[in-house]
Amino acid sequence: MAELIAWVLVVVIAAYACAGGTDYGAGFWDLVAGGAERGKRPRGLIDHAMAPVWEANNVWLIFVLIVMWTGFPTMFQAVFSAMWLPLALAAVGLVLRGAGFALRKPSRRLAQRRIYGAMFAVSSLLTPFFLGAVLGGIASGRVKVGTTASADAWANPTSILAGLLAIAATAFLGAVFLCSDARRFGARDLVDYFRLRALLAFAGVVVLALIALPVTHNDARYVWDGLTGGAGLLLVILAAVCGLATVLLLLRRSHGWSRYTSVASVALVVGAWGFAQRPYVLPTSLTVTQAAGASHTLRWLMIVTVIAIILVGPALVLLYRLDTQGELEELTDAETVAARTPGDNL
């Protein structure tokens, strides 16, 4: 049962990496979209595309935390003690990001939009970095039960590379999705704009992965071995195939399938990491069995998970379907009968 819950955790992390990652990626492109005038159209698209789904996308993170503390309480305690600073910064980043995004939309003044937009965009960069760094620290075996918070736990080669890879992967996902969104909303120029950026981000992922290969060889030996052999390697290869397929689809401008392949590649990498860490939740000091909570609770956690899939799954599918069919649109000032106030310049 503990093994099964561990896989639930991996799947939920993968879901967050894909759903949340797309969101963070959109924030990344918002950040680098340039000045107010030049970046107006891409930012408009990002706003428009993200708005209905970003909250649902980010709830996966809460699932991750809950499965951690209910299923593997000792692991949760160890991770949050050792990784105190990056997790605290990630939490602050989440607040700034969400608030910036939510408050930017109703603002009708350029100066305010700039501030909220900057809050949103900068934290979209920092939050995935810190979360990636935490995963890197765990993968390199720097978290043990009883480890106290220290810089080494997350400021080390593996962590930094994992953080940068997280940023690159989110940028890749974000650009691929925005590419399809641009086509959906009929913004032809932005299709090419984000197509180019998706390709660049993919190149970034490949370069970082190639750097990571030698650097993490000794630093995160156990996971390195797991990723370069057995089931881990198989998934890594599949992920690479999916990534390349995305590139091909982008080059051939068939944007219908590129989203699925890009999501698959990221999810498969997370899955590969899951295989590589077996049987540890904290390599190489704490196994899944050692960390597992009470068996009665795990059984119920599984039941709750199944209920969640039954209830949330259809709702989520409905949300994504309505969204991709263009049924979801923001209320405009016309519908709420709002006037302009002095000083509005947008």
Partner: peptide, 17 residues
């Protein structure tokens, strides 16, 4: 959370979904 997470954490699981 380390000591009691598996005893009372499930409520949060319900809350999460």
């Amino acid at each position: 959370m380390g000591r009691w997470g598996d005893v009372f954490g499930l409520g949060f699981g319900v809350e999460a979904w």
